[in-house]
Simulated scan of single mutants.
Amino acid sequence: TPVQDLQYVYYLLSLIDELPQDKSILIYLLLKKWNEQKDISLEEKDYELSIHFLKTYTNNRVEDQLFQMLYILSIDQIVDDKTLRIWVENDFEKIIKWENEYLKDMQNKLRQEHRFVDDCYSLDIYEDLKKLLGYKKYLDSYKEIETEDEMKYALLFGLKECPYPMYSCFVMQSIEADHGVSRGSGLY
């Protein structure tokens, strides 16, 4: 079974330079997480995404920084697809800075849990990494993606294309088509 803590999984992947090139995957997965926690509700209509804020904060300090960036965009506690795509384009550097803080926060948590020995990772981190890479191989070689959880990991590993229309709100081609701008492939 895979490690369930999204922030920890993301951090483990960063240790071996396996983070997805598409930076929006993390935002997408956090939106799904917040939707499951009932912090927001997601509505898809005609391949357009709307985020409806049910709360003004989330229960994780570092995730809340991203949550607040999105909440500020809302009008009547709703952010539509077009606003979201423009925000990703305009605040791309802020998003990258936030992502680095997200990873640093996980490292600090691991230090507080004494999962470092003489500034090296403890064996349990290496064991979790082995388990994660084993799950990646299992999904890639032997498993048809069937569940939401499997899809989450397949996206993080860069194994499968996401079949969900909701993810399309982040795709670079949409921004290029709508706004005539390009950041190059794989940047977000």
Rank of each mutant, 00 (worst) to 15 (best):
residue 22 D to S: 03
residue 51 I to A: 03
residue 171 V to D: 08
residue 162 C to P: 00
residue 98 W to Y: 10
residue 4 Q to K: 15
residue 81 D to L: 05
residue 3 V to R: 10
residue 102 Y to L: 03
residue 188 Y to G: 02
residue 186 G to L: 07
residue 145 I to W: 01
residue 20 P to C: 07
residue 118 D to Q: 13
residue 83 T to D: 11
residue 5 D to T: 06
residue 78 I to F: 05
residue 167 Y to N: 00
residue 167 Y to E: 07
residue 23 K to I: 06
residue 102 Y to C: 03
residue 123 L to S: 12
residue 68 Q to N: 10
residue 150 E to L: 03
residue 99 E to T: 12
residue 42 L to S: 00
residue 162 C to E: 07
residue 2 P to M: 14
residue 12 L to Q: 07
residue 81 D to A: 03
residue 68 Q to R: 13
residue 8 Y to D: 02
residue 81 D to W: 04
residue 148 E to S: 11
residue 54 L to Q: 07
residue 64 D to Q: 05
residue 94 K to L: 15
residue 89 E to I: 10
residue 73 L to N: 06
residue 115 R to W: 12
residue 57 Y to L: 05
residue 75 I to R: 12
residue 122 S to D: 15
residue 90 N to E: 15
residue 19 L to D: 04
residue 159 L to D: 00
residue 12 L to I: 09
residue 187 L to F: 11
residue 82 K to Y: 12
residue 127 E to T: 13
residue 37 Q to D: 14
residue 138 Y to K: 13
residue 59 N to E: 14
residue 128 D to C: 06
residue 182 S to C: 09
residue 56 T to V: 08
residue 83 T to A: 12
residue 143 K to A: 13
residue 37 Q to Y: 09
residue 100 N to H: 13
residue 187 L to H: 13
residue 153 Y to V: 00
residue 34 W to D: 04
residue 128 D to R: 08
residue 46 D to P: 00
residue 173 Q to S: 12
residue 15 L to P: 06
residue 20 P to V: 09
residue 27 I to A: 02
residue 173 Q to I: 11
residue 112 Q to S: 13
residue 27 I to N: 02
residue 42 L to Y: 01
residue 166 M to T: 12
residue 142 Y to H: 13
residue 43 E to G: 07
residue 71 Y to E: 07
residue 32 K to S: 01
residue 8 Y to A: 04
residue 65 Q to G: 03
residue 22 D to K: 11
residue 108 N to W: 08
residue 101 E to L: 14
residue 26 L to H: 05
residue 172 M to T: 07
residue 153 Y to P: 01
residue 40 I to A: 06
residue 8 Y to S: 02
residue 165 P to V: 14
residue 60 N to C: 07
residue 35 N to Y: 08
residue 119 D to F: 14
residue 43 E to V: 14
residue 60 N to Q: 10
residue 146 E to Y: 04
residue 157 F to M: 01
residue 32 K to N: 04
residue 57 Y to V: 04
residue 124 D to I: 15
residue 89 E to C: 04
residue 61 R to C: 05
residue 136 K to L: 04
residue 142 Y to P: 01
residue 123 L to C: 03
residue 159 L to A: 02
residue 37 Q to W: 11
residue 125 I to V: 15
residue 76 D to K: 13
residue 34 W to A: 01
